[in-house]
């Protein structure tokens, strides 16, 4: 079963050259290696900050754009993993190992839905 890990509140990540960058990069890569070792890794990426977000709504056939994210909250989506897990227990076990979670991020774990007839999707 595929699970999406939505990682909130992880935008203050260090950039190359920051003192903790190497240490955190090593930990994040080690997490992905553990997922690969289990055969769970499907995908995972950080997102650029919400200041780069554009939100689109279609009204009366017209696209309306707003500068900024969809939800007015303090916790923004900052990255994701897509993992293939045996069950929710394995997903939650891996979620607890996500390095960002140890630096104050919140992780929402959502199972990927399967819709008969859908012609795409990795699930």
């Amino acid at each position: 079963m595929h699970y999406m890990f939505l990682i909130y509140n992880c935008e203050d990540r260090p950039r190359p050259g920051d003192p903790r960058f190497e240490e955190i990069l090593t930990r994040v890569n080690a997490f992905a290696d553990e997922c690969r070792r289990r055969g769970a890794f499907v995908a995972g990426d950080p997102l650029k900050p919400v200041t780069t977000a554009t939100t689109l709504r279609v009204r009366d056939g017209k696209a309306l754009l707003t500068d900024g994210p969809f939800a007015e909250t303090h916790e923004h989506l900052g990255g994701y993993y897509l993992l293939d897990c045996r069950d929710l227990d394995e997903a939650l076990e891996l979620a607890a190992m996500v390095p960002q979670a140890h630096f104050g991020s919140t992780i929402e774990v959502r199972p990927v839905d399967h819709i008969p007839g859908l012609n795409h999707g990795v699930a």
Partner: peptide, 13 residues
Amino acid sequence: DAGITFEVPADHL
């Protein structure tokens, strides 16, 4: 729907 397995959890859990 969330894949909560119907079983006694593994030893480490």
